[in-house]
Nucleic acid binder design. Sequence first.
DNA 1: GTCTATACAAAGATAGAC
DNA 2: GTCTATCTTTGTATAGAC
Lengths: 195, 195
Amino acid sequence: MTAAPSSTASEILDVAEALIQTRGYSAFSYQDISDALGIRKASIHYHFRSKAELAAAVVDRYAARFSAALAGIAANPRKSSLAMLDQYMAPYFEFSKSPDKVCLCGALAGEMMALPGAVRTRVEAFFEEHQQWLARILQRGVERGEFVLSSRPARMARMIFGALQGALLVKRTTGDASQLADVAAALKAQLRPAR
Amino acid sequence: MTAAPSSTASEILDVAEALIQTRGYSAFSYQDISDALGIRKASIHYHFRSKAELAAAVVDRYAARFSAALAGIAANPRKSSLAMLDQYMAPYFEFSKSPDKVCLCGALAGEMMALPGAVRTRVEAFFEEHQQWLARILQRGVERGEFVLSSRPARMARMIFGALQGALLVKRTTGDASQLADVAAALKAQLRPAR
DNA sequence: GTCTATACAAAGATAGAC
DNA sequence: GTCTATCTTTGTATAGAC
């Protein structure tokens, strides 16, 4: 959201982020970034000492963007919990509109055991944060009488988060544009008060 | 299931499969296999001309194992549809018991745009097959009065498949052993007849 | 079918000039 | 801050002996 002051460092982060989202960590290289920005590989090393450091910075920025958005969504006490969930899902729908993008951390999850430790811990923290945020919103919905859950909030949160991440990955592979909308509909159907 | 006649080729497939499940496609090398089996890299090339060909063979064998299992599950007309779903989920639970394994195709999904075409099409076919099989079982459950679905079978199938794949990926990252059981419970809760 | 040897390209990274 | 040049390691792959 914050349009960064277009320094080289942030342009490198932009390209690296897109590359990881589409190709993963192991399959992207400094050369890819060099080609995209028209600078030399050595110049990238000036801004980010190593590939691991660059990837960690990409995840940090990505996670921070989400953290700010999540705080913003939950800030309005008069908003319905269902509306909050809809807002949470909006970025996933954005990704699903592109033919080749998934959640940055969802892409990284497939190659976890090949990731540098600094990247791995950040992906883990991202997953934890999102699941906890979702659990809080679900709990709030129950307390306000908006939701009736078939499982405890923490469980439902896990399912919703995993389903969204999985849906994006499957959608990109099968190219089926309605995948995410279908998943979102099925998830929300599970939150409705008993008939 | 078919305990192969332990030829070198099948041992290579075994190791490659495990490596892809844990590290992904881009991050595994012929050297890794060479180290694991105590043979030279050149010997692997004798059995599989290229890395792309090897990976395609790995996915083929993996998918064939599942195809046979799926056919077996659906073969018994007296089995409950819920029992069929439980059997479908069993391999996911097996993976979730290990600290570092996810579905082979789930791991590959994260780096789709970096995969050779032959591998990509096979992963896509795997996803399609599983979602179609799940949709048929759900449809059967509706017809037999076992399930009441909040969405059409194809949609529910997508959600279940995506949720299972996503749950495995998230579980491996967060290390939370109950993730898959929680997701399975939440998914099944969604299939119950109206209260 | 497995080996040694080697080719060739790409990767991540550093040194030092400008 | 970006460049050229270079180093080192690794990766995929092939040729040909055993």
